[in-house]
Amino acid sequence: MSLLPRSARLALMAALDVALHSRARPVSSRALAARHELPPRHLESMLQAMVRAGILKSVRGPSGGYELAKERRRLCVGEIVRVALRAEEEANGAESPRLLSSVIDPVFAEAERLALARLDEITLDSLHAAALVLGFGHEDAAEGDFDI
């Protein structure tokens, strides 16, 4: 069981995948989806939400796709999760029953606040390093990170 919705976990996975595979060229949404056995359209709206939030940048053209918009060490997991949570909230948009919104939602809002504060302490760079240790991505992708 996970307290984070699947969309938040998939957004984080997509950002990590881009970090692992975009050194030579941008990561296409089709390649990303194929690597994780997801329908190509499944991630596109989330990828676009991350572009609008400044987490990813979109590269147009025949060899286009997605790249990180910032250094891995400057992207925190909490930031990525917040984008996914907002996107899901906007998509669902239904009004909640009063008991849910008055009693239950505040409890989960506090838990979410605490969890996001902890996720803000974790960078995409630390997930990237852990993924490389486990054999994901390419070792040459770990070479260097640009500084601004």
Rank of each mutant, 00 (worst) to 15 (best):
A15L: 06
A15E: 05
L20W: 10
H21M: 12
R23K: 14
R23W: 10
R25G: 11
V27I: 13
V27Y: 05
S29L: 08
S29Y: 12
A31K: 13
A31Q: 14
L32E: 10
A33C: 03
A33M: 08
A34Y: 09
R35G: 02
E37Q: 02
L38P: 10
L38K: 00
P39K: 14
P39A: 11
H42Y: 13
L43H: 01
E44D: 07
S45I: 05
M46G: 08
Q48R: 10
M50G: 06
A53Q: 01
I55E: 06
L56C: 09
L56I: 04
K57F: 07
V59R: 01
R60H: 03
G61I: 03
G61K: 06
S63Q: 15
G64W: 04
G65M: 07
Y66D: 04
Y66L: 13
E67P: 02
L68D: 02
A69V: 08
K70G: 06
K70E: 14
R72Y: 04
R72N: 08
R73P: 03
R73Q: 12
R73K: 13
R74Y: 12
L75D: 06
C76G: 02
V77M: 09
V77A: 07
G78H: 05
G78C: 00
V83W: 04
A84Y: 10
A84H: 03
R86Q: 15
E89M: 12
E90A: 14
E95V: 13
S96R: 06
S96E: 14
P97G: 09
L99V: 09
L100N: 12
S102L: 12
S102W: 08
V103I: 09
V103R: 09
I104D: 09
I104N: 07
D105F: 07
P106I: 00
A109E: 11
E110P: 01
E110V: 01
E110G: 08
A111N: 05
E112F: 04
A115D: 02
L116W: 00
A117V: 02
R118T: 11
R118S: 15
